[in-house]
């Protein structure tokens, strides 16, 4: 009995530490008073303000477009790369897998500064396209990471069987290989999408003065002093990610 209670208490404590900051934030987003210390009553005012704030809405739009495009392009490139890598001989394959893993382990700030230096050296104007290219770059390894295991699970003979039955290599790929590795491709896409949504450091160094994503926007706003709209925005982002997560988990559970 006591043991059971302690177990539950312990789990509860962990959850409180994990989620208390977020709940405080959510609470504050509904606070009528501007003060962080005082509860002034419930309001949706900050949400209204948020949706009327053109620059935040622009940042949201940019963020979503970049996340979608970069995830899509990275998925295409990453899937093709995974197929090529898995068809390589053992040693070059091991080397290439290691090389694609490095960007994931590399500190964001190093990646960000290097990319910025590269763009400047090539006289590439910093802006939307430089951010997009950067996001594609750091997203590709995540796609490879989730697609490679699926390719490894493939029965190598199914592709040959398709060719044997008269299919062209392209037809065989779309009809036989892709359906089998698609769960991995989808995971890779979602992973890349969230990584792009999440990113602050690399975007910060490669965006130039013209555009802002949500994370860089929040950063500049916070420097001017935190406005409760930002709480509202953060709350909405949290809920969006939560819904996405539930959706993915549901899908996986149904599959099983």
């Amino acid at each position: 009995m006591v043991k059971k209670f302690i177990k539950k208490f312990y789990v509860g404590l962990i959850l409180i530490f994990l989620y208390a900051p977020i709940f405080i934030l959510i609470g504050l987003s509904f606070n009528k008073s501007k003060s962080r210390a005082k509860w002034g009553g419930f309001t949706l005012h900050w949400y209204k303000e948020l949706f009327q704030n053109q620059s935040i809405m622009n940042a949201l739009y940019t963020t979503l477009i970049i996340a979608l495009l970069s995830a899509l392009i990275a998925t295409l490139i990453g899937t093709a790369a995974s197929l090529a890598i898995s068809n390589m001989k053992k040693t070059p394959r091991a080397i290439l897998v290691a090389i694609t893993n490095i960007p994931m382990l590399n500190a964001d700030i190093v990646t960000g500064i290097s990319l910025m230096l590269l763009f400047v050296a090539m006289r590439f104007t910093l802006g939307f396209s430089s951010v997009l290219i950067s996001h594609i770059t750091f997203n590709i390894p995540y796609v490879i990471l989730s697609v490679m295991p699926k390719i490894k699970q493939l029965n190598p003979h199914t592709y040959e069987a398709a060719l044997d039955l008269g299919a062209s290599p392209i037809y065989a790929f779309f009809k036989v290989i892709l359906p089998d590795i698609f769960p991995g491709v989808l995971t890779g896409f979602f992973l890349a999408f969230t990584m792009s949504l999440d990113d602050f450091v690399i975007t910060h160094f490669t965006k130039g003065p013209q555009i802002n994503t949500l994370s860089t926007k929040i950063y500049t706003e916070v420097r001017k002093g935190i406005k409760p709209e930002i709480y509202a925005l953060s709350t909405l982002m949290f809920i969006a990610v939560l819904l996405l997560l539930i959706l993915i988990n549901r899908r996986n559970a149904e599959k099983k």
Binding site: H157, A161, P179
Partner: peptide, 20 residues
Amino acid sequence: LAPNERQLNTVFQKYALFTH
């Protein structure tokens, strides 16, 4: 000739059925 251009068909060791 490529495999898809030959008038032969193969039965593979591990069946290689299309699972989906």
